[in-house]
């Protein structure tokens, strides 16, 4: 391991203040309906969320943005920022990714001397861009010289690890159960990165109906500890 990788680790830490602890991305709807109530049902939900939404949105976007950074084709990045935001049909999830993106770019820009991050932050400030953590994370990975696939893998890992922490609080699950799920997800995360590699542009934003509906319904869930 080198220091570059260690730096990217910092962004994966669930203590990294992006506000991810406030967002369940529809999980809370399933918890309220008692469809997710233990380690097994949560792991089932998490896999569907990863493989049927995250890979097609954040995962594919991270890959495309990394390539665009390599080619210095910045318009592709700004298009991806817009696409990532508007493809979220559920308002809370859309607002949530935007908030997290803003938080992350602000901190990342303070830590790293990377012109791309400053540019992205400025565009968001001027409302030319929305902000998305998948794009910020990829910019940092690329800036640090971490390979593309590793960057995508670590981004997906951080998303999953955050959701596990949220599930531990909300379901609730034991801390050990949470760590076991994260460990068990390693091969699934690698499979997700492989899937991302095989996707074409037209696959972008595909989502399974139940996952999306739960995110739309969350607005009307009675008892809420999450904002999405």
């Amino acid at each position: 391991m080198n220091n570059k990788l260690l730096s990217l680790f910092q962004l994966c830490d669930s203590n990294f203040p992006t506000g991810a602890f406030s967002h369940s991305f529809g999980l809370e709807t399933y918890i309220q309906e008692d469809k997710v109530h233990d380690q097994a049902t949560f792991a089932e939900w998490l896999e569907v969320y990863l493989m049927e939404q995250l890979v097609y949105s954040d995962g594919l976007a991270a890959r495309i943005v990394y390539d665009a950074l390599e080619n210095e084709d910045f318009d592709v990045i700004w298009e991806m920022d817009r696409l990532l935001t508007v493809q979220n049909i559920a308002r809370e999830t859309r607002d949530g990714t935007q908030q997290m993106g803003k938080h992350m770019v602000k901190i990342a820009d303070s830590i790293y001397d990377a012109p791309m991050l400053s540019m992205y932050r400025e565009r968001i400030r001027q409302k030319q861009s929305f902000g998305h953590s998948a794009i910020v994370f990829t910019m940092v990975g690329h800036y640090l010289g971490v390979p593309k696939q590793t960057t995508v893998l670590y981004y997906l890992y951080s998303a999953i690890a955050n959701l596990v922490q949220n599930a531990v609080r909300a379901i609730p699950l034991g801390q050990t159960a949470g760590q076991k799920i994260i460990y068990a997800f390693q091969p699934k995360l690698e499979a997700a990165v492989e899937t991302v590699e095989t996707l074409e542009d037209i696959d972008f934003g595909a989502v399974s109906p139940g996952i999306e509906l739960s995110q739309m319904q969350h607005e009307r869930v009675n008892v809420r500890i999450f904002m999405s």
Partner: peptide, 23 residues
């Protein structure tokens, strides 16, 4: 671009009746 909507139902590969899919 103001909205982008992509629904995919793939019973050939997905557990289509299950949680997260057609519920």
């Amino acid at each position: 671009l103001i909205s982008y909507d992509h629904i995919k139902l793939n019973p050939g590969e997905q557990p289509i009746t299950g949680m997260g899919f057609m519920e």
